[in-house]
């Protein structure tokens, strides 16, 4: 999986591409630990699969951002990924929007 960081004045956007599983979580954790953003937008448009370790990474990012007074916004969720969030009811815990552009409104 590739992770592209895009810096904005108020938030960090991570564009993820590929299979997001336990092998790939360290680079996302590293990026978030390095920049310690208050707000993070995670673009999942090109993510083909998430496992529980990836979900745990997103949950941890959400908790950290909320502690700093910000939040994690998940954007462009493809259908297979959306199903995983619905089955685990993590869709109740996250802010999920359709486009990266919409995320800037949050």
């Amino acid at each position: 999986m590739t992770v592209i960081e895009e810096f904005h004045p108020d938030y960090l956007t991570l564009h993820l591409d590929g299979r997001f599983d336990a092998h790939e979580t360290p680079q996302v954790r590293q990026s978030l630990a390095t920049h310690t953003p208050k707000n993070v937008h995670i673009n999942l448009e090109k993510v083909t699969f998430l496992d529980s370790a990836a979900l745990a990474t997103l949950v941890q990012a959400m908790k950290n951002c909320r502690e700093r007074g910000g939040d994690v916004v998940l954007c462009n969720m493809p259908q297979p990924v959306r199903i995983i969030f619905e089955l685990t009811r993590l869709d109740k815990a996250f802010k999920i929007i359709n486009t990266v552009h919409d995320a800037t409104q949050h």
Binding site: L87, L90, K92
Partner: peptide, 27 residues
């Protein structure tokens, strides 16, 4: 709490997926 899949199959009906109504424990 966030667990999937759970499938209920009545003897006289079609299988049903019992979906979670809460995120997992610890979230």
């Amino acid at each position: 709490c966030g667990h999937s899949p759970v499938i209920y199959m009545p003897h006289d009906g079609e299988p049903q997926l019992l979906e979670a109504d809460s995120p997992p424990i610890g979230v």
